[in-house]
């Protein structure tokens, strides 16, 4: 360890070895990420799924709405490599076209839940006192609302708003508004843990204000558990969108999504498992990719693991 040299206080410091440039935390993180196989695997999956969401016609020329009942539950043939579902629709085409709404609803609702959860958890944990009591009890109340009941009431109300034709906005808002509580609780506890650390006291002693304390010291050291909760929430929300669509408060009309495909296919598992398995595989791979990406990024930004 070259660190040991530094202990010899009297010897003048040796000149820095050439080539060791000073790097920021972000540059260090990128340096690490580039070598991470998990990061690249996750990135490839996410890019493919995003392409699917943006230009589904790149992946299939078939129309997901071209359904012929006579093809019901038929096996793979020609372009329909995943076979046909109970209505005789091309499962592959439906899966490709389903990416758009699943990703859109999943990512946006998680972002919304993340912003609310971060703000509430940070405020409750950092400021404590009556604000903490108020916010924590509010979280308790939110957690007490049964998810389906809350989603139906909220979803119906939001869906009635004008300018909401396909129901994407309503579902996203519903999932975001009902999904932030766990994140807020996790955030609150890790903020409380971080703010009592000695280095926060040291910064306070120097005279650092609340903004510096929060954004330089508390938040960076409290984010890790929160990001894990969010990546898990992404999978949950993509699946919940299906539940809501099934109940009639989700996506409307002839919208296709993985969730809808999965919930439709569950009734016919024993007859034809394909229509259930393929969207599920895509869903699982996407969620896994986001979790892996979250993990890789979090580790890369943690100097202790470098």
């Amino acid at each position: 360890m070259s660190d040991m040299n530094a202990l010899a206080a009297e010897t003048p410091a040796p000149p820095s070895p050439a080539g060791r440039k000073s790097r920021s935390l972000a540059a260090d993180a990128w340096h690490d990420l580039r070598r991470s196989k998990i990061f690249w695997a996750a990135l490839v999956i996410i890019v493919v799924v995003l392409l699917m969401a943006i230009w589904p016609s790149l992946f299939t020329s078939a129309d997901p709405h071209d359904c012929v009942l006579s093809r019901r539950h038929r096996g793979a043939s020609g372009g329909a490599i995943f076979g046909y579902d109970y209505q005789g629709c091309d499962v592959y085409a439906k899966t490709v076209y389903g990416a758009r709404y699943s990703i859109l609803v999943g990512v946006c609702s998680v972002l919304l839940a993340g912003v609310i959860g971060l703000t509430v958890g940070l405020a409750a944990g950092y400021f404590g006192g009556w604000l903490d009591a108020l916010l924590s009890r509010f979280v308790d109340v939110m957690l007490g609302v049964p998810f389906l009941l809350g989603a139906i009431v909220l979803g119906k109300r939001l869906a009635a708003e004008p300018g909401n034709s396909n129901g994407v906005l309503a579902v996203t808002l519903t999932l975001g508004i009902l999904g932030w509580t766990t994140g807020a609780r996790v955030m609150r506890s890790s903020v409380i843990e971080a703010k009592n650390q000695d280095y926060v006291a040291a910064a306070r002693m120097v005279g650092a204000g609340p903004a510096r304390l929060i954004f330089r010291h508390v938040l960076p050291n409290a984010m890790a558990p929160f990001t894990v909760v969010l990546t898990i929430l992404l999978g949950i929300n993509i699946a919940s969108e299906a539940t809501l669509s099934f109940l009639g408060v989700g996506l409307k009309g002839d919208a296709v999504s993985w969730g809808i495909s999965i919930s439709e296919a569950t009734g016919y598992v024993r007859v034809a498992p394909g229509p259930l398995i393929w969207p599920s595989v895509f869903l699982a791979a996407t969620v896994l990719a986001f979790i892996m990406l979250g993990d890789a990024v979090r580790d890369a930004f943690d100097p202790k693991l470098r």
């Binding site: 000695d198 280095y199 040291a202 910064a203 330089r216 010291h217 960076p220 050291n221």
Partner: peptide, 9 residues
């Protein structure tokens, strides 16, 4: 061990 922020240089 606890008085230096682990995420700062």
């Amino acid at each position: 061990y606890t008085s230096l922020n682990p995420r700062m240089t």
